[in-house]
Computed example of a mutant assay.
Amino acid sequence: MYLEQLETPVPVVDLDRLAHNLDRMAAYATLHGLRLRPHVKTHKSPRIAAEQLRLGAVGLTCATLREAEVMSEVCTDILVAYPPVGAARLERLAMLPAGVRVAVAADDAHALDALSVAARLGHRTIDVMVEADLGMHRVGVTSPEKAVAIARQIDRASSLRFAGLQFYPGHIRAKVSEQDAALAQLGRDIAQYVDALRDAGLPPAIVSGGSTPAAWRMHEVPGVNEVRPGTYVYNDRTTAQIGACDWEDCALTVLATVVSVSVKGQAVVDAGTKALGREPLRAEGDGYGALLDHPEVIVSRMSEEHGILDLSRSAWRPRLGDQVRIVPNHVCIVVHLFDEIIGVRGHAVETRWPVAARGRASNRELDTVPQGPRAV
């Protein structure tokens, strides 16, 4: 089968570019002595997770319990980097396979009481990372003193184990070459937390940072010994715009068909918000995506099933029925919109795989409870 035979819109992944991206991050982490714990929120696929682990990742990072359940099929070391709040979430966390080491991130002492109960009921010990807010202002404790208080409570709980310090530098979105000041401040902030924990007799064995935009310079931040990037596997328009990858490293595109050329200066494709999402570009530029082969052509506006290509900055003119490949602004959202990914080399369709961890349903609801890691 070839691209021209696929019904659109559909996400396609260039397998050679994917392999390059996986190898590049694995090599970076190895070169700088960093533990690589990639976030699966981008690909949501055991197939790709297994390849990340084969290339040296120490474990996986998940955002949802659905992701954790699916990834427990291929991984024995999972961090759920999301506040462990709510009875249903805690029950699913405790029910993960017994052979899987489970860690969570926490920023509130009250959450630890319920987490400890869930761990005891699940007959397991749960590792807990204290999450610090170092600039994202989303979750995380806001002072070293609070971090120490939570770490002490974790240390006192028989079913919990203090595992280290975690942060997410999502506020660093400048171009990679312009991150010096932000990274220097990040290093100073981390030092305050690490020193406070060490002075309290609770030195963090792991200091874990995430985010693809800042991942390539995490080795410059003193104290950090683990990275949790996600987007790097596929990359996207935002990542390319800030210099965290080259345009040629964008492995996933949405294949779309030109369905109308009747209005001068534009073309309409069959990929709208239900295929591309509606996240604005978090970098210099506008629109909701750009064409892989004609990056000057952007998706300027959308409705649910229609995407409008702005041709005003290009001499290229598509014909009715032409296929185009759109690099989305934010690839993680796009993956979550589809059930399946198509793997290609050139124009040839070579393979396909399910987006197995999309959605929220539990494995028990889907009657696919994993018994432990398996080979993929």
Results as ranks from 00 to 15, higher is better:
M1I: 05
V10K: 04
V12K: 13
A19L: 08
A19I: 02
A27I: 01
Y28D: 13
L31P: 01
L31N: 11
L34E: 03
L36R: 07
T42A: 13
T42M: 08
L53K: 08
L55F: 07
V58E: 10
G59Y: 09
T61N: 15
C62Y: 08
D77N: 15
L79Y: 09
P83E: 14
R89W: 15
L90I: 15
E91W: 14
M95P: 03
R101A: 11
A119E: 04
A119W: 05
A119R: 04
T125P: 02
E131P: 01
G135A: 15
H137M: 13
S143E: 05
A147P: 05
I154S: 04
A157C: 03
R173G: 04
R173C: 01
R173F: 04
V176G: 09
L183M: 06
I190Q: 12
L197V: 00
A200R: 00
V207E: 00
M218Y: 02
N225S: 05
E226H: 00
G230K: 03
T238W: 13
A240T: 02
Q241W: 03
W247A: 00
D249Y: 07
A256C: 11
S260W: 08
A267G: 12
G272R: 14
T273H: 12
L276N: 10
G277E: 02
R282N: 10
R282D: 09
A290E: 05
V299Y: 11
V299D: 10
E305T: 15
L311F: 10
R313H: 09
L320M: 15
Q323L: 15
V324L: 11
H330D: 10
V331N: 14
E340H: 08
E350F: 14
R352S: 12
P354C: 06
A357D: 00
A361C: 11
R364D: 04
E365P: 01
V369T: 10
V369P: 05
G372W: 00
P373Q: 08
